[in-house]
Design a protein around this nucleic acid. Structure first.
Lengths: 200, 200
DNA sequence: CCTACCGATCGGTAGG
DNA sequence: CCTACCGATCGGTAGG
């Protein structure tokens, strides 16, 4: 009854596949995400799923893209109206903490999971993940330097060091939430961020 | 030529399997660790490998045990001679940083990788990982409290908060090393630890 | 978007 | 510790 869909319907189907794939991959990883399971859960055939992406790697890249969009909406776009400097940096961190706290995906932060998974491999998927992480680090670094320029942070602040420590706080947050279901973790993260930004 | 080995030979074979399994799992995860590949790399049959552990889950648990032993040798046992208090805590952190810096396993820190992998599942493997992580957190917490008692850290120190932030530093270290091959990361970690222990 | 199929590999078992 | 095998599932293709 539903072969040969219109272009619109096809793109809607593609979106459905990617959304479900993102949820599955956040739990089982991008390698554990299988075309067969995705097809079953969506009530489709494997060929129907695969047709939208060509190969499994194509599917994985589409899922990474979707995760990046979700992160962008939840964190940097939330802080858009906030004026540059320490206020903006704080807003970014707060959005970041609450993004992790909300657990929008069943398996916790997608990027933490797939970064650990693709860490030590080569290929386009790993490159996409590393590239997005680099972009985010650069984004953070820019806001830190802006806060220094404005005078909100001392002139001898080392932006890369601060980026490093902020990332650590968020990695620890995801770790505590996922592995120990520790409900105090978000508050610990906020305290750590506060202490870090005050100390500098 | 080699069926029916002696007990000693059997335990040696088992150790060979676990060691290789640990290296493979640090790269591909505990689920990506397959009996077939392990057998091929060791020049054995699949049944020969599986016989030592019964099931794949048994193999996974044995590998987790081996990783815990490796970590214990590299970190807490290194700090054994150091007197309690801040000195001991600092020694623990330095051993921890250099354990990650050395990259004894091809895939980086085994526990970071498998924690992210088994995060959101159930079962004995997840429980083993979470249990070991809890033990290590408790160990750290004890040394922090000891440093408070001795007067090396202020009386209002929150041990769990400090544990949280130390773990973040080490997670960020592994992340930077594995995803970006960042050679400055160990020095950043050391600086972060120093700042953290001085601030308290 | 489907059915029908491919070779390869998975974890695991029987039997020796 | 081996050979020989099991059903299930993997990613992917042919053809419509």
């Amino acid at each position: 009854m539903s072969p040969r869909n219109s272009v619109l319907e096809a793109s809607r189907t593609r979106q459905r596949i990617v959304d479900r794939g993102l949820a599955l991959a956040s739990v089982d990883g991008l390698e554990g995400l299988t075309i067969g399971r995705l097809a079953t859960e969506l009530g489709m055939s494997k060929a129907g799923v695969l047709g939208h992406f060509g190969t499994k790697e194509g599917l994985q890249l589409a899922v990474v893209d979707a995760a990046a969009e979700m992160f962008a909406r939840a964190v940097p776009q939330r802080a858009r109206g906030v004026p540059p400097g320490l206020a903006h940096l704080s807003a970014l961190c707060e959005a970041w903490v609450s993004y992790l706290e909300q657990e929008l995906l069943p398996g916790g932060c997608f990027f933490t999971a797939v970064a650990a998974e693709f860490d030590d491999r080569g290929g386009p998927v790993r490159d996409a993940i590393a590239g997005l992480d680099s972009l985010w680090r650069r984004d953070l670094s820019i806001h830190i330097r802006r806060a220094v320029t404005v005078g909100d942070l001392p002139a001898d602040t080392d932006p890369d060091q601060l980026v490093y420590e902020l990332i650590g706080i968020m990695l620890a947050l995801n770790h505590s939430l996922q592995l120990h279901r520790d409900k105090q973790a978000p508050e610990r993260a906020r305290r750590a961020v506060r202490r870090l930004l005050e100390a500098h």
